[in-house]
Design a protein around this nucleic acid. Sequence first.
DNA 1: CTTGACCTGTGTCTTGGACACAGGTGTAAG
DNA 2: CTTACACCTGTGTCCAAGACACAGGTCAAG
Lengths: 184, 184
Amino acid sequence: MTKSRTNSLDFLSGLELMIDSYQGKEQIFGVNLNPAIVRLSCEEGCVKVIEMARRLGVTADTVRFYTRIKILKPGKNKANGYREYSEKDYNRLRFVLSARQLGFSVEDIQEILNHADNKKSPCPTVRRLIDQRLHETERQLRETLKLRDRMQQAVLEWSQKPDKAPTGHMLCHLIEEFTAEERL
Amino acid sequence: MTKSRTNSLDFLSGLELMIDSYQGKEQIFGVNLNPAIVRLSCEEGCVKVIEMARRLGVTADTVRFYTRIKILKPGKNKANGYREYSEKDYNRLRFVLSARQLGFSVEDIQEILNHADNKKSPCPTVRRLIDQRLHETERQLRETLKLRDRMQQAVLEWSQKPDKAPTGHMLCHLIEEFTAEERL
DNA sequence: CTTGACCTGTGTCTTGGACACAGGTGTAAG
DNA sequence: CTTACACCTGTGTCCAAGACACAGGTCAAG
Ligand SMILES: [Zn+2]
Ligand SMILES: [Zn+2]
Ligand SMILES: [Zn+2]
Ligand SMILES: [Zn+2]
Protein backbone atom coordinates (compact mmCIF):
# COMPACT_ATOMS: atom_id res chain seq x y z
CA MET A 1 0.00 0.00 0.00
CA THR A 2 2.74 2.38 0.87
CA LYS A 3 4.44 1.18 -2.23
CA SER A 4 1.55 1.80 -4.57
CA ARG A 5 1.03 5.18 -2.94
CA THR A 6 4.53 6.24 -3.71
CA ASN A 7 4.05 4.73 -7.11
CA SER A 8 1.59 7.29 -8.30
CA LEU A 9 2.63 10.09 -5.97
CA ASP A 10 6.34 9.61 -5.55
CA PHE A 11 7.00 13.22 -6.38
CA LEU A 12 5.62 14.07 -2.99
CA SER A 13 8.21 12.13 -1.05
CA GLY A 14 10.72 14.25 0.79
CA LEU A 15 8.59 17.33 0.60
CA GLU A 16 7.06 17.05 4.02
CA LEU A 17 10.04 18.75 5.61
CA MET A 18 9.66 21.79 3.44
CA ILE A 19 5.99 22.37 3.91
CA ASP A 20 5.33 23.45 7.44
CA SER A 21 1.88 24.80 6.78
CA TYR A 22 0.70 21.47 5.48
CA GLN A 23 -1.20 19.53 8.09
CA GLY A 24 -3.24 16.36 8.22
CA LYS A 25 -1.28 14.73 5.46
CA GLU A 26 -2.26 11.19 6.30
CA GLN A 27 -5.93 12.04 6.28
CA ILE A 28 -5.63 13.77 2.99
CA PHE A 29 -3.75 10.85 1.60
CA GLY A 30 -6.41 8.56 2.98
CA VAL A 31 -9.36 10.52 1.75
CA ASN A 32 -8.27 12.11 -1.46
CA LEU A 33 -5.12 10.39 -2.46
CA ASN A 34 -5.88 6.72 -2.07
CA PRO A 35 -4.06 5.29 -5.06
CA ALA A 36 -7.08 3.34 -6.21
CA ILE A 37 -9.16 6.48 -6.32
CA VAL A 38 -6.43 8.51 -7.91
CA ARG A 39 -6.01 5.88 -10.56
CA LEU A 40 -9.70 5.98 -11.22
CA SER A 41 -9.81 9.63 -12.16
CA CYS A 42 -6.30 10.20 -13.35
CA GLU A 43 -3.42 7.90 -14.08
CA GLU A 44 -0.44 10.23 -14.07
CA GLY A 45 -0.47 11.13 -10.38
CA CYS A 46 -1.93 14.55 -10.82
CA VAL A 47 -4.11 16.53 -8.46
CA LYS A 48 -6.83 19.11 -8.65
CA VAL A 49 -6.59 22.75 -7.79
CA ILE A 50 -7.77 22.67 -4.21
CA GLU A 51 -5.44 19.84 -3.27
CA MET A 52 -2.53 21.61 -4.92
CA ALA A 53 -3.34 24.72 -2.96
CA ARG A 54 -3.63 22.87 0.33
CA ARG A 55 -0.27 21.21 -0.14
CA LEU A 56 1.48 24.54 -0.38
CA GLY A 57 -0.62 26.42 2.13
CA VAL A 58 -2.21 28.85 -0.29
CA THR A 59 -5.74 29.39 -1.51
CA ALA A 60 -7.22 27.80 -4.60
CA ASP A 61 -7.52 31.32 -6.01
CA THR A 62 -3.78 31.72 -5.84
CA VAL A 63 -3.28 28.52 -7.79
CA ARG A 64 -5.87 29.63 -10.31
CA PHE A 65 -4.20 33.02 -10.56
CA TYR A 66 -0.84 31.53 -11.48
CA THR A 67 -2.62 29.23 -13.88
CA ARG A 68 -4.40 32.13 -15.47
CA ILE A 69 -1.21 34.03 -16.11
CA LYS A 70 0.39 30.86 -17.42
CA ILE A 71 3.08 30.35 -14.86
CA LEU A 72 1.44 27.02 -14.22
CA LYS A 73 0.36 25.00 -17.21
CA PRO A 74 -1.61 22.06 -15.86
CA GLY A 75 -3.11 19.47 -18.15
CA LYS A 76 -6.81 19.19 -18.67
CA ASN A 77 -8.89 16.13 -18.09
CA LYS A 78 -10.82 15.81 -21.32
CA ALA A 79 -13.71 14.02 -19.66
CA ASN A 80 -14.65 16.77 -17.24
CA GLY A 81 -12.46 19.76 -18.07
CA TYR A 82 -10.77 19.75 -14.68
CA ARG A 83 -7.19 20.98 -14.36
CA GLU A 84 -4.59 18.36 -13.60
CA TYR A 85 -1.56 19.58 -11.69
CA SER A 86 1.55 17.45 -11.95
CA GLU A 87 4.79 17.22 -10.06
CA LYS A 88 6.26 19.82 -12.37
CA ASP A 89 3.50 22.26 -11.50
CA TYR A 90 4.01 21.51 -7.85
CA ASN A 91 7.71 22.29 -8.07
CA ARG A 92 7.02 25.42 -10.06
CA LEU A 93 4.49 26.73 -7.61
CA ARG A 94 6.72 25.98 -4.67
CA PHE A 95 9.46 27.89 -6.43
CA VAL A 96 7.14 30.81 -7.15
CA LEU A 97 6.10 31.03 -3.51
CA SER A 98 9.70 30.92 -2.38
CA ALA A 99 10.59 33.71 -4.75
CA ARG A 100 7.63 35.81 -3.65
CA GLN A 101 8.86 35.44 -0.06
CA LEU A 102 12.11 36.97 -1.17
CA GLY A 103 10.38 40.01 -2.58
CA PHE A 104 10.42 39.13 -6.26
CA SER A 105 7.46 40.37 -8.23
CA VAL A 106 5.41 38.03 -10.33
CA GLU A 107 6.91 39.62 -13.41
CA ASP A 108 10.40 38.99 -12.05
CA ILE A 109 9.45 35.39 -11.54
CA GLN A 110 8.21 35.06 -15.06
CA GLU A 111 11.53 36.34 -16.30
CA ILE A 112 13.41 33.92 -14.08
CA LEU A 113 11.28 31.03 -15.22
CA ASN A 114 11.82 31.94 -18.85
CA HIS A 115 15.54 31.48 -18.36
CA ALA A 116 15.08 28.20 -16.55
CA ASP A 117 12.67 26.94 -19.17
CA ASN A 118 15.31 27.58 -21.81
CA LYS A 119 17.82 25.54 -19.79
CA LYS A 120 19.83 28.67 -19.09
CA SER A 121 20.97 29.51 -15.60
CA PRO A 122 18.61 32.07 -14.11
CA CYS A 123 21.12 32.93 -11.41
CA PRO A 124 22.56 36.11 -12.95
CA THR A 125 19.05 37.44 -13.45
CA VAL A 126 18.16 36.49 -9.91
CA ARG A 127 21.15 38.35 -8.52
CA ARG A 128 20.42 41.44 -10.58
CA LEU A 129 16.74 41.48 -9.67
CA ILE A 130 17.18 41.00 -5.96
CA ASP A 131 19.60 43.88 -5.91
CA GLN A 132 16.95 46.12 -7.43
CA ARG A 133 14.21 44.86 -5.16
CA LEU A 134 16.40 45.20 -2.10
CA HIS A 135 17.02 48.85 -2.86
CA GLU A 136 13.30 49.39 -3.30
CA THR A 137 12.55 47.61 -0.08
CA GLU A 138 15.05 49.73 1.78
CA ARG A 139 13.51 52.88 0.42
CA GLN A 140 10.09 51.58 1.34
CA LEU A 141 11.35 50.80 4.81
CA ARG A 142 12.67 54.31 5.30
CA GLU A 143 9.42 55.80 4.12
CA THR A 144 7.33 53.60 6.34
CA LEU A 145 9.57 54.41 9.27
CA LYS A 146 9.20 58.13 8.69
CA LEU A 147 5.47 57.77 8.37
CA ARG A 148 5.26 55.81 11.60
CA ASP A 149 7.31 58.42 13.45
CA ARG A 150 5.12 61.17 12.10
CA MET A 151 2.00 59.31 13.17
CA GLN A 152 3.35 58.57 16.63
CA GLN A 153 4.35 62.19 17.06
CA ALA A 154 0.87 63.29 16.02
CA VAL A 155 -0.82 60.94 18.47
CA LEU A 156 1.45 62.20 21.21
CA GLU A 157 0.79 65.86 20.52
CA TRP A 158 -2.91 65.34 20.04
CA SER A 159 -3.21 63.73 23.43
CA GLN A 160 -2.68 67.21 24.89
CA LYS A 161 -5.18 68.93 22.66
CA PRO A 162 -8.94 69.22 22.92
CA ASP A 163 -11.45 68.46 20.21
CA LYS A 164 -12.65 71.46 18.28
CA ALA A 165 -15.39 72.19 15.83
CA PRO A 166 -14.35 73.07 12.28
CA THR A 167 -14.12 76.72 11.32
CA GLY A 168 -14.13 78.52 8.02
CA HIS A 169 -10.49 77.90 7.26
CA MET A 170 -9.65 75.08 9.65
CA LEU A 171 -11.28 71.75 8.94
CA CYS A 172 -9.50 69.87 11.69
CA HIS A 173 -7.10 71.76 13.88
CA LEU A 174 -5.34 68.56 14.93
CA ILE A 175 -4.27 67.68 11.43
CA GLU A 176 -3.67 71.18 10.18
CA GLU A 177 -1.74 72.45 13.16
CA PHE A 178 0.41 69.35 13.17
CA THR A 179 1.26 69.73 9.51
CA ALA A 180 1.96 73.42 9.96
CA GLU A 181 4.41 72.64 12.77
CA GLU A 182 6.13 70.01 10.69
CA ARG A 183 6.96 72.54 8.04
CA LEU A 184 8.97 74.75 10.39
CA MET B 1 -0.95 96.93 -7.20
CA THR B 2 -0.21 94.85 -4.17
CA LYS B 3 -3.52 96.00 -2.88
CA SER B 4 -5.57 94.99 -5.87
CA ARG B 5 -3.75 91.67 -5.96
CA THR B 6 -4.83 90.89 -2.46
CA ASN B 7 -8.23 92.13 -3.36
CA SER B 8 -9.11 89.27 -5.61
CA LEU B 9 -6.73 86.74 -4.20
CA ASP B 10 -6.56 87.60 -0.53
CA PHE B 11 -7.11 83.99 0.43
CA LEU B 12 -3.58 83.35 -0.70
CA SER B 13 -1.96 85.71 1.79
CA GLY B 14 -0.08 83.96 4.54
CA LEU B 15 0.14 80.71 2.65
CA GLU B 16 3.57 81.21 1.22
CA LEU B 17 5.18 79.99 4.41
CA MET B 18 3.35 76.71 4.22
CA ILE B 19 4.08 75.81 0.65
CA ASP B 20 7.72 75.02 0.36
CA SER B 21 7.45 73.29 -2.98
CA TYR B 22 5.95 76.35 -4.56
CA GLN B 23 8.55 78.28 -6.51
CA GLY B 24 8.58 81.23 -8.83
CA LYS B 25 5.58 82.80 -7.18
CA GLU B 26 6.19 86.29 -8.43
CA GLN B 27 6.44 85.13 -12.00
CA ILE B 28 3.27 83.16 -11.72
CA PHE B 29 1.55 86.09 -10.15
CA GLY B 30 2.85 88.28 -12.93
CA VAL B 31 1.89 85.97 -15.74
CA ASN B 32 -1.21 84.20 -14.62
CA LEU B 33 -2.47 86.08 -11.65
CA ASN B 34 -2.35 89.68 -12.71
CA PRO B 35 -5.58 90.98 -11.22
CA ALA B 36 -6.68 92.53 -14.49
CA ILE B 37 -6.37 89.22 -16.28
CA VAL B 38 -7.99 87.30 -13.50
CA ARG B 39 -10.88 89.72 -13.49
CA LEU B 40 -11.28 89.24 -17.18
CA SER B 41 -11.93 85.53 -17.00
CA CYS B 42 -13.36 85.18 -13.53
CA GLU B 43 -14.50 87.65 -10.97
CA GLU B 44 -14.61 85.61 -7.78
CA GLY B 45 -10.89 85.00 -7.40
CA CYS B 46 -10.95 81.42 -8.57
CA VAL B 47 -8.28 79.50 -10.43
CA LYS B 48 -8.04 76.67 -12.90
CA VAL B 49 -6.87 73.18 -12.25
CA ILE B 50 -3.23 73.52 -13.21
CA GLU B 51 -2.74 76.62 -11.10
CA MET B 52 -4.43 74.98 -8.14
CA ALA B 53 -2.11 72.01 -8.51
CA ARG B 54 0.99 74.16 -8.77
CA ARG B 55 0.13 76.07 -5.63
CA LEU B 56 0.07 72.89 -3.57
CA GLY B 57 2.89 71.10 -5.33
CA VAL B 58 0.86 68.30 -6.86
CA THR B 59 -0.05 67.37 -10.40
CA ALA B 60 -3.18 68.47 -12.20
CA ASP B 61 -4.20 64.82 -12.25
CA THR B 62 -4.27 64.77 -8.50
CA VAL B 63 -6.56 67.77 -8.41
CA ARG B 64 -8.76 66.18 -11.06
CA PHE B 65 -8.80 62.95 -9.08
CA TYR B 66 -10.11 64.62 -5.94
CA THR B 67 -12.59 66.49 -8.08
CA ARG B 68 -13.74 63.29 -9.68
CA ILE B 69 -14.44 61.62 -6.36
CA LYS B 70 -16.16 64.79 -5.16
CA ILE B 71 -13.87 65.78 -2.38
CA LEU B 72 -13.41 69.01 -4.28
CA LYS B 73 -16.50 70.63 -5.74
CA PRO B 74 -15.31 73.50 -7.88
CA GLY B 75 -17.71 75.71 -9.78
CA LYS B 76 -17.97 75.60 -13.52
CA ASN B 77 -17.49 78.50 -15.86
CA LYS B 78 -20.60 78.36 -18.00
CA ALA B 79 -18.90 80.00 -20.95
CA ASN B 80 -16.18 77.42 -21.47
CA GLY B 81 -16.88 74.58 -19.06
CA TYR B 82 -13.65 75.08 -17.14
CA ARG B 83 -13.50 74.22 -13.45
CA GLU B 84 -13.16 77.14 -11.05
CA TYR B 85 -11.40 76.38 -7.79
CA SER B 86 -12.08 78.74 -4.92
CA GLU B 87 -10.43 79.44 -1.59
CA LYS B 88 -12.61 76.77 -0.04
CA ASP B 89 -11.33 74.17 -2.50
CA TYR B 90 -7.81 75.33 -1.83
CA ASN B 91 -8.23 74.85 1.91
CA ARG B 92 -9.87 71.49 1.41
CA LEU B 93 -7.12 70.22 -0.84
CA ARG B 94 -4.43 71.47 1.50
CA PHE B 95 -6.21 69.63 4.28
CA VAL B 96 -6.46 66.46 2.21
CA LEU B 97 -2.76 66.52 1.43
CA SER B 98 -1.90 67.06 5.08
CA ALA B 99 -4.06 64.12 6.07
CA ARG B 100 -2.52 61.90 3.40
CA GLN B 101 0.90 62.74 4.82
CA LEU B 102 -0.31 61.39 8.14
CA GLY B 103 -1.30 58.09 6.61
CA PHE B 104 -5.02 58.59 6.31
CA SER B 105 -6.63 56.88 3.35
CA VAL B 106 -8.79 58.80 0.95
CA GLU B 107 -11.81 57.05 2.39
CA ASP B 108 -10.79 58.13 5.89
CA ILE B 109 -10.54 61.68 4.64
CA GLN B 110 -13.98 61.52 3.13
CA GLU B 111 -15.35 60.42 6.47
CA ILE B 112 -13.52 63.21 8.27
CA LEU B 113 -14.76 65.78 5.80
CA ASN B 114 -18.31 64.56 6.19
CA HIS B 115 -18.15 65.39 9.87
CA ALA B 116 -16.63 68.77 9.23
CA ASP B 117 -19.19 69.55 6.54
CA ASN B 118 -21.95 68.87 9.04
CA LYS B 119 -20.31 71.30 11.48
CA LYS B 120 -19.48 68.44 13.82
CA SER B 121 -16.02 68.07 15.25
CA PRO B 122 -14.11 65.48 13.25
CA CYS B 123 -11.52 65.14 16.00
CA PRO B 124 -12.88 61.95 17.64
CA THR B 125 -12.99 60.28 14.25
CA VAL B 126 -9.50 61.50 13.51
CA ARG B 127 -8.17 60.07 16.75
CA ARG B 128 -9.85 56.74 16.16
CA LEU B 129 -8.67 56.46 12.58
CA ILE B 130 -5.07 57.37 13.23
CA ASP B 131 -4.94 54.73 15.90
CA GLN B 132 -6.02 52.11 13.37
CA ARG B 133 -3.68 53.36 10.69
CA LEU B 134 -0.81 53.52 13.11
CA HIS B 135 -1.26 49.89 14.02
CA GLU B 136 -1.36 48.98 10.36
CA THR B 137 1.73 50.99 9.65
CA GLU B 138 3.57 49.30 12.49
CA ARG B 139 2.64 45.89 11.15
CA GLN B 140 3.70 46.97 7.70
CA LEU B 141 6.96 48.20 9.12
CA ARG B 142 7.67 44.89 10.81
CA GLU B 143 6.88 43.00 7.64
CA THR B 144 9.06 45.20 5.51
CA LEU B 145 11.86 44.91 8.01
CA LYS B 146 11.65 41.13 7.98
CA LEU B 147 11.59 41.11 4.22
CA ARG B 148 14.63 43.35 4.05
CA ASP B 149 16.55 41.14 6.45
CA ARG B 150 15.63 38.07 4.46
CA MET B 151 16.77 39.73 1.26
CA GLN B 152 20.03 40.92 2.76
CA GLN B 153 20.70 37.48 4.13
CA ALA B 154 20.03 35.97 0.72
CA VAL B 155 22.39 38.36 -1.02
CA LEU B 156 25.04 37.58 1.54
CA GLU B 157 24.74 33.82 1.21
CA TRP B 158 24.50 33.94 -2.54
CA SER B 159 27.75 35.84 -2.78
CA GLN B 160 29.45 32.58 -1.81
CA LYS B 161 27.58 30.42 -4.26
CA PRO B 162 28.12 29.81 -7.95
CA ASP B 163 25.58 30.05 -10.70
CA LYS B 164 24.02 26.77 -11.71
CA ALA B 165 21.85 25.54 -14.51
CA PRO B 166 18.32 24.45 -13.64
CA THR B 167 17.67 20.76 -13.11
CA GLY B 168 14.54 18.67 -13.14
CA HIS B 169 13.46 19.56 -9.64
CA MET B 170 15.53 22.66 -8.94
CA LEU B 171 14.65 25.73 -10.95
CA CYS B 172 17.10 28.02 -9.19
CA HIS B 173 19.26 26.58 -6.47
CA LEU B 174 19.87 30.03 -4.98
CA ILE B 175 16.24 30.68 -4.23
CA GLU B 176 15.27 27.14 -3.36
CA GLU B 177 18.19 26.36 -1.12
CA PHE B 178 17.77 29.64 0.69
CA THR B 179 14.13 28.97 1.34
CA ALA B 180 14.86 25.42 2.44
CA GLU B 181 17.41 26.71 4.96
CA GLU B 182 14.99 29.28 6.29
CA ARG B 183 12.54 26.59 7.23
CA LEU B 184 14.91 24.83 9.56
C1' DC C 1 -32.64 12.20 -6.93
C1' DT C 2 -30.94 15.51 -4.31
C1' DT C 3 -27.53 17.73 -1.74
C1' DG C 4 -23.28 19.72 -1.15
C1' DA C 5 -18.61 20.04 -2.24
C1' DC C 6 -15.86 20.81 -5.81
C1' DC C 7 -14.59 22.35 -10.50
C1' DT C 8 -14.48 25.65 -14.80
C1' DG C 9 -13.79 30.37 -17.05
C1' DT C 10 -14.65 35.07 -16.80
C1' DG C 11 -15.29 39.55 -14.85
C1' DT C 12 -14.84 42.79 -11.33
C1' DC C 13 -12.78 44.83 -7.05
C1' DT C 14 -9.05 46.69 -4.25
C1' DT C 15 -5.30 52.11 -3.89
C1' DG C 16 -4.28 56.63 -5.31
C1' DG C 17 -3.62 58.49 -8.60
C1' DA C 18 -1.08 58.36 -13.72
C1' DC C 19 -1.72 58.22 -18.39
C1' DA C 20 -4.23 58.21 -22.78
C1' DC C 21 -7.54 59.90 -25.85
C1' DA C 22 -10.86 62.72 -28.35
C1' DG C 23 -12.42 66.99 -28.68
C1' DG C 24 -13.13 71.97 -27.06
C1' DT C 25 -10.87 76.67 -25.68
C1' DG C 26 -7.69 80.60 -25.39
C1' DT C 27 -3.94 83.16 -26.88
C1' DA C 28 0.28 84.57 -29.19
C1' DA C 29 2.89 84.61 -33.39
C1' DG C 30 3.26 84.46 -38.35
C1' DC D 1 -6.91 85.00 -40.30
C1' DT D 2 -4.78 81.01 -39.52
C1' DT D 3 -2.08 78.13 -37.19
C1' DA D 4 0.40 76.40 -33.39
C1' DC D 5 0.45 75.31 -28.85
C1' DA D 6 -0.79 75.10 -24.22
C1' DC D 7 -4.46 74.31 -21.57
C1' DC D 8 -9.08 72.49 -20.43
C1' DT D 9 -13.02 68.80 -20.26
C1' DG D 10 -14.84 63.96 -19.28
C1' DT D 11 -14.12 59.22 -19.67
C1' DG D 12 -11.72 54.95 -19.70
C1' DT D 13 -7.92 52.14 -18.66
C1' DC D 14 -3.80 50.73 -16.01
C1' DC D 15 -1.02 49.37 -12.05
C1' DA D 16 -0.07 44.27 -8.08
C1' DA D 17 -1.38 40.17 -6.53
C1' DG D 18 -4.60 38.00 -5.82
C1' DA D 19 -9.82 37.90 -3.58
C1' DC D 20 -14.41 37.47 -4.53
C1' DA D 21 -18.56 36.68 -7.27
C1' DC D 22 -21.23 34.38 -10.60
C1' DA D 23 -23.22 31.04 -13.78
C1' DG D 24 -22.95 26.67 -14.93
C1' DG D 25 -20.84 21.83 -15.03
C1' DT D 26 -19.15 17.42 -12.25
C1' DC D 27 -18.99 14.05 -8.82
C1' DA D 28 -19.73 11.12 -4.76
C1' DA D 29 -22.66 10.09 -0.77
C1' DG D 30 -27.11 9.45 1.40
ZN1 LIG E 1 -4.24 13.17 -15.25
ZN1 LIG F 1 19.74 30.28 -9.89
ZN1 LIG G 1 -15.18 82.17 -11.39
ZN1 LIG H 1 -10.17 67.81 14.49
